[in-house]
Amino acid sequence: MTAMTRRSLLTGIAATAGGLLTGCDQLARNESFREALFSADNVHRWTQRALTDRNALAREFRPDQISPYFRPNGVRNPGTPEYAAMSADNFAAWRLQVTGLVNRPLSLSLPQIQALPHREQITRHDCVEGWSAIGKWRGVPLRTILDGADLKTNARYLVFRCADTNGGARPYYESIDLVDAFHPQTILAFALNDRPLFVANGAPLRLRVERHLGYKHAKFLTGIEAVASLENIHGGNGGYWEDVAGYQWYAGI
């Protein structure tokens, strides 16, 4: 093979590679291809749930393994006048509303929640971006709240409403299914590293759903709604980032 044809072969390979990448972007705009691409997280969820223990616990670490600094991420302060007023008053007026497909709707104050049996867990928080931080969380198992509210039999998902409304247009929200809702490490946390949650970490109450990436752990909780389907809630994809950016609803991957 001559040097000339060798060079043209290599140029050809490089050009093909570049062309393929552009082609991939075009392919990703094709609706049915996009659907197939977006359905892979279901395959991951089915595979994980089929092959592994549904109630497996996330690792809990020793106190000396805690990150020196726990990086807050996403919205660091909801910034609404209502939230500012509640925060200034140590969240005395704050309530967690438990509504939807429940037999006993609840409206709980922070002292009421803090009076319930606690769980403490030192766990690793994994952001979708790739970084991890280890922190110690204290909170009330979500199961305790759900048992109090008594879910109706047609409830399939829990939707978490948050105080960060992004100017009202697109409030942050998240949702999980009942496998994760009743998992022993799924807690509503009010303390991080033995201190009440900072605003940046989601004061006064945030979700910890330890087998999922960070965006599932809704901060600044104001309500939990039990629903049968996620279809008619905001963008219908089960969460703020799922609607806005196309993140996977199943964030166990």
Partner: peptide, 11 residues
Amino acid sequence: TMSPGMNAAWP
């Protein structure tokens, strides 16, 4: 090992 779900299932 990037997957928090797999980490819990297969420590």
